[in-house]
Design a protein around this nucleic acid. Structure first.
Lengths: 109, 109
DNA sequence: TCGATATTTCGATAGTTATCGAATCATTGG
DNA sequence: CCAATGATTCGATAACTATCGAAATATCGA
């Protein structure tokens, strides 16, 4: 994982509505949730929700698929796993302050 | 860990210079590095470096101590550990996509 | 105390990000 | 094919963030 990718992922999660969105999608699991359902749940106008979903999507944190008129978003766990791996590798110099992640994709940004 | 704290930490790391700074501090370990040394290493003017260090500090990711004329910054691993814990708890609904963290500070943002 | 060194604070400016209504696009049911 | 529904794109605006020089603050050595 490259630092630019990491920065995009961190930046995507570093916003109230997007962090809440991501958490809802994690809870929803593989079924995911439609953009409109997310907007309702968070009390956001559709255009704002769409803006935030685009950020999460661009950061690779969520996937999208169309189901009839709705677009269903779902959390992409592998991206979060990669992010966790990067943070772990770059925290405590790999000796790990929190035991986690694969540990052989060592990365010098 | 509260979501506001999480957002601040994520936001602090979601910036090229600050991520690089944090990585240098992780490598430096407990000895830490002086603000000026960090500025030199990253090729940033002192005032910009100071700005970024303040963000990291405000997010609780680094500690600071004065040593004579210099101010030494060091990575605070516990904050990163807490962040990792939060992300893990809120990723895969705690079932963990990347096995990590304490796991009993369950948190509903 | 004075001058030099290390850092932070201030202030101006440029760039980025968030917000949200209106317009547009895509899909479905009748 | 048309109206309705679900979502995105556009455009304007407000808010926040980054940058960096100059000025201010703290510490040390002579």
């Amino acid at each position: 994982m490259q630092s630019e990718t990491v920065i995009r992922a961190l930046g995507a999660l570093a916003q109230e509505h997007r962090l809440a969105t991501y958490r809802l999608l994690v809870q929803a699991g593989a079924d995911g949730m439609a953009a409109g359902a997310l907007a309702d749940a968070l009390g956001l106008p559709a255009s704002s929700m769409s803006f935030h979903l685009a950020q999460l999507s661009h950061a690779g944190l969520v996937t999208q698929r169309r189901q009839s008129r709705s677009i269903i978003y779902a959390a992409d766990y592998s991206a979060m796993g990669a992010l966790m791996g990067y943070l772990t590798e770059n925290c405590c110099g790999g000796a790990s302050c929190a035991p986690a992640a694969p540990a052989d994709e060592r990365n010098v940004a």
